[in-house]
Each structure stands twice: as C-alpha cells, then as structure tokens.
Computed example of a mutant assay.
Amino acid sequence: MRYSVRQVADFAGVTVRTLHHYDRTGLLAPGGRSRAGYRLYDDADLARLQQILFYRELGFSLEEIAAILEDPQAGALDRLRERQRRLAEEIARLQRLAEVTERAIEVQQTGVPMTPEERFEVFGDIAFDLSYATEAQLKWADSAGRREAMARAAAHTKEDWRRLMAEAADWRADLLDAHDAGEPADGERAMDLAERHRAHVTRWFTDCPPAMHRRIADDFAADPRAFALVVPAPQQRPGLAAYLCEAVHANAARRPSGAPTPSEEEQP
C-alpha cells in the first residue's frame, strides 16, 4: 500500500514541508510517484521515517542520521552511547536548574516585603544578586542559622531595614577609612571593625559565632557577589575583600571560643 505525503505527515506528526526537505536532501526519498508526479510512500519508507524521527528525538543532526542510515553498523552504537552520556549530563543539569529555581522561589517568597521603589530607597547601591542567593540557599540549605536569618529578614519592617542599613553604612565608612589609612588587617582597629560586623549579623539576622563569621568572610574574599552585599561595587578597593577576611580571621583568633563581647551582652 502506498500513502500520499499528506497521509504520511498526519501519521508521523510532521509537516509536509519537513517531508519535502527530507526528500530534497536524500534522507527520505519516496518509493514512488503518482501519474501526476505526487510523492507516494510505501511501508519501507515509513519504517525509514520512523528511524529518522527516533534519532531526531535523541538530538542527532540530519547529517548524523544520514550517516547512520547509510550504514547502521558503522559507528551507530558508539554514536548512541555518546548521545546517552550527553543526555545523562543534560538531565543532571536540568535537575540542578530545577532545584536552583525552587530555591530562588523560596528566596523571593521569604524576601523583604517592599515595593521595588521602597527597596531602592532603603538598599540604594547594595546589590542582591539572585544567582548568589540561590547558590547560598543550596550551600546552606541544612543550616539552622540560614533558616533563622531568612525568617528574621522576612519579619523586618521597612523601618527595621532603614536602621539596619544606616548601621551598615556607618560600619562600611569606618572600614574604608581604616583600609585607606593603611591600618593593618590584624591590627586593633581592623579587628574591632570585624567584631562590629559580627555583632551586626547577630543583632539583625542570626547568632554568628566566630567560626561562622570566618566562613562568611571567606565567601566575601572568594565571591564578588557576596562582597557586594556589604560593600557596593562603586565603593570597593582592590584587596578590600581580602583585607576584611583577614581582619575577621584575626578577630576570631583573639577571642576565646564562645565568649560574648560587650556588644553582644547589651543586645535585647
């Protein structure tokens, strides 16, 4: 039995234009023609089309499919194995993207309840990079401190954020002044600034023992997106993130583990 191009297109779920293209390229030439010159496909043609569509679904190019169909024994198995490997990698990538997207949704849902205008008014140049936020969510997903920080951040009022950002701006100005004045990172002034930052995190987000503060500082030094959360890019200096990281580590080393500072003892 023979079938018209329209019938085959309907059977296979492809367009007539696609079948015409396959014919022009020699990938699938119909087995016959009607008296009027119209394409007619037989069962062997349909079987070949089924193979073409199978390989297309796997992502092979038309050139690759033509080579496979020309000689199915010449490298077809190797091609399929390579495609299987690439598909497995793509599945893993998409799974990762799905997880990151889910975390990004969580970040947005537990974010600061402000309009875009209010966010700009309060945060100014502080950049909250969503790509860093979602990676941080994945990295610290099982951290009780991370969960507490997100919950407390979501509960802050607009006025809370004003106070928080004003406090951070004062600290940032003092940090820049110390750095520009050449104060050593392991000196008293720099370490006191590191301690103020640690107390700031504890006051507004979550308890921040020295070990946690060191990890936060390591992120500042390693990832510009993290450092931009405390020092906007226009205010940054070369080496400033490393300077703060060193000061945090020095401050952690000078304090007995778990011993509260006066700033922590005064907190409500």
Rank of each mutant, 00 (worst) to 15 (best):
V122Q: 06
L193G: 01
P210N: 10
K158D: 00
G258S: 00
L46A: 02
P268W: 07
A222C: 00
L49G: 03
E64F: 00
I105W: 13
Y22I: 12
E266L: 14
E167M: 02
E90W: 04
E106I: 03
Q267K: 05
I68R: 05
T134G: 01
R189F: 05
F123K: 10
T101A: 13
D129N: 13
H156Q: 09
H213N: 06
R56Y: 07
Q267F: 08
P232S: 08
D43F: 06
Y243D: 09
T110E: 11
C208L: 04
G31N: 05
A181D: 14
W161H: 14
Y243R: 10
R85G: 01
A44F: 01
Q84R: 12
A222E: 08
W171C: 03
L193T: 00
Q95V: 05
A127K: 03
R24M: 11
V201L: 15
A88S: 01
T202C: 11
R83F: 01
D177E: 15
L175W: 03
A185E: 15
D71S: 14
I68L: 07
R214K: 05
A66S: 10
E106S: 13
D71L: 11
V16M: 10
D186Y: 10
R189L: 14
L176I: 11
R214V: 14
L240E: 10
K139L: 12
V107P: 04
A74V: 06
T157E: 09
R33A: 11
F11L: 13
R172Y: 10
P268Y: 03
T157V: 08
V248K: 01
G59K: 03
P209F: 00
Q7P: 06
E70P: 01
L27H: 04
Q84K: 11
G124H: 04
H213E: 14
Q50R: 15
A153W: 14
L27F: 06
L69R: 07
A181I: 13
E121F: 04
S143H: 09
